Amino acid sequence: MNNSRGKPMFARCLGGLLLVGALIDAAQARDYRYSDAHLHYVDFFQESEGMPALLKAMDAARIDQSMISGVSVAKKWHEDEPKRPRYYAGDDADAYWYSATDVYVAAALQKLPAEQRKRFHPFLTGFNPVDKNAVTHIERMLELYPGLWQGIGEVFTRHDDLTALTSGDTPRANNEAMTRIYHLAAEQDMPVLIHSNITSKRERNPLYLAEIEEPLRNHPHTRFIWAHAGTSLEIHRHQTRMDFLLPTLTRLLEDYPNLFVDLSWSVLQPYLLDEQGVPRPQWLALVQRFPERFMLGSDVVGRYGSLGEQLHGFDPFLDALPADVAQKVARDNFLAVLPKAR
Rank of each mutant, 00 (worst) to 15 (best):
H78W: 10
H78P: 05
E79H: 14
E79W: 13
E81L: 09
P82F: 03
P82W: 04
R84I: 06
R84V: 09
P85G: 11
P85M: 11
R86D: 03
R86N: 07
Y88D: 06
Y96N: 03
Y96A: 07
Y96P: 00
Y98K: 06
S99Y: 04
S99M: 04
D102I: 09
A107G: 00
L112Y: 11
L112K: 09
P113Y: 01
E115A: 15
E115Y: 09
F120D: 14
H121K: 15
P122V: 01
P122Y: 00
F123N: 01
F127I: 12
D131V: 06
K132G: 06
K132L: 12
K132C: 09
N133F: 11
A134C: 02
V135D: 10
M141A: 12
P146D: 03
P146G: 00
Q150G: 02
Q150H: 06
G151V: 04
G151F: 02
G153T: 12
F156L: 15
R158A: 13
D161Q: 13
A164I: 11
S167N: 13
S167M: 11
R172E: 01
N174P: 09
A177Q: 05
M178F: 01
T179V: 00
T179I: 00
T179G: 14
Y182P: 00
H183L: 14
L184S: 04
A185S: 14
A185W: 02
A186K: 08
Q188F: 08
M190W: 13
P191Q: 08
V192F: 03
V192T: 06
I194W: 08
I194K: 04
I194Q: 10
I194T: 14
K201N: 12
E203D: 15
L207W: 12
L209M: 12
I212W: 05
I212R: 02
E214F: 03
L216M: 14
R217L: 12
H219N: 13
